[in-house]
Design a protein around this nucleic acid. Sequence first.
DNA 1: CGATTTCCTTGATCAGGATCAAACGAAAGG
DNA 2: CCTTTCGTTTGATCCTGATCAAGGAAATCG
Lengths: 248, 248
Amino acid sequence: MSLHALKLAPQDCGACPIRHLAVCARCDGPELAKLEEIKYYRSFQAGQNVVWSGDRMDFLGSVVSGIAILTQTMADGRRQMVGLLQPSDFVGRPGRAIAPYDVTATTDLVMCCFRRKPFEDMMAATPHVAQRLLEMTLDELDAAREWMLLLGRKTAREKIASLLSIIARRDAGLQAKAAKGPISFDLPLTREEMADYLGLTLETVSRQMSALKRDGVVTLEEKRRIVVPNFDRLASQTGDDSDGGFRS
Amino acid sequence: MSLHALKLAPQDCGACPIRHLAVCARCDGPELAKLEEIKYYRSFQAGQNVVWSGDRMDFLGSVVSGIAILTQTMADGRRQMVGLLQPSDFVGRPGRAIAPYDVTATTDLVMCCFRRKPFEDMMAATPHVAQRLLEMTLDELDAAREWMLLLGRKTAREKIASLLSIIARRDAGLQAKAAKGPISFDLPLTREEMADYLGLTLETVSRQMSALKRDGVVTLEEKRRIVVPNFDRLASQTGDDSDGGFRS
DNA sequence: CGATTTCCTTGATCAGGATCAAACGAAAGG
DNA sequence: CCTTTCGTTTGATCCTGATCAAGGAAATCG
């Protein structure tokens, strides 16, 4: 009901949790007012599709809260996740109305949407939106390329450790950033979604999760709830840093 | 010697082969003049490194001719290519001077370079460069995500066929676009570079190339010279289109 | 010229992860 | 309540691609 309320009465941009991170970050005063004019909120339930690949998208928008995933599917059903969208991440491409990927909410999701035409007009007229979007797109490109390294060269264990590490860093960055203490968080993905992200099968994901638990790298309570007793220990399993887990 | 000449006497932008494709595509008149002012050409021999990961980059620029690759390397030496740069493609990121990847010329290469500081100033001052760069970055992001699907889900044979198909489409698009006739081109990559791009070993690349030759999908003359007698036949091996190679 | 190096091919064997299969726990539904 | 469904775990076996190893062809160099 509160979500429904959101739909009907969008919050003031000034109070928006992603105000300084999203595509609107650089806008102010009249620009922000213009964005506010063409925006509306939409809510999605966990599991619901935001867009289907090949469909027309009449809006572009930002994730306000929740997690969404981008997936590509081959003709024979093989799937690959190509993006994990967190609050402030942008969905859609100016100038191209046909969606190239499926976008799916994996948790309850709230999006701040802009009608396509006025948003595109604004991009052409004022530079701040385009500049911020460029910055965000360059970041996404870096992330995609880091993921290419993971998909092409990492072992199953390293893939799992990398994913947990990324989610932990972001999700728990708030609670105990530099603290050496245990970090805990909820996985926003099913085993199958993890497999689709990592280029594995769900069985391999499950086995490697069990292996990490057996080795004491993580603790599982309730399948989705992860506890990382020592973050450096987890990080040492990702293959990213030189030491194979023996230093630090 | 002609390359050296290029370095000293940059061509006029009006005569540039990538004029309407590169980051300068939208610029004209005074903007183009300004770019011309801060640009210079650099040549690299095949095999030479343009930048090393972690090094400072004092310029940004466009590939004018030749092919360059972006690679990431893990601490233990595993490598993954994360980009194939063709004429008009852009190198470097405004606002970040430290290169995150190795950039290597795989053929003789000419680049049109802009000094970082004035280029960044220009990005802030005039929208046309930033707008075009956004467009190009979005295209690269799409390409990176397509590659994620390849790395995560395609078989070795599909990977090779996809790579050949991409190079063929681009490289031979000029010679015989819609013609049903054979297409031929030179691979700009060694077997090892192909392996690094595709997330395979060079032995597997070699074996799959032999298999495609044995099956009549391609003909090899001189190891690097590829002839594709029937492009649709090659395309049917990439896994991209529904039909497993039995239609068409 | 022969020697070295670079790039590529091919063979034999191994192993990591896929596939096939069964079963479990929790939640949802009749 | 029992049944179904969904997400997950675990086991057995298979297979694709990696690894280890040897040798060939062409270019480069002394």
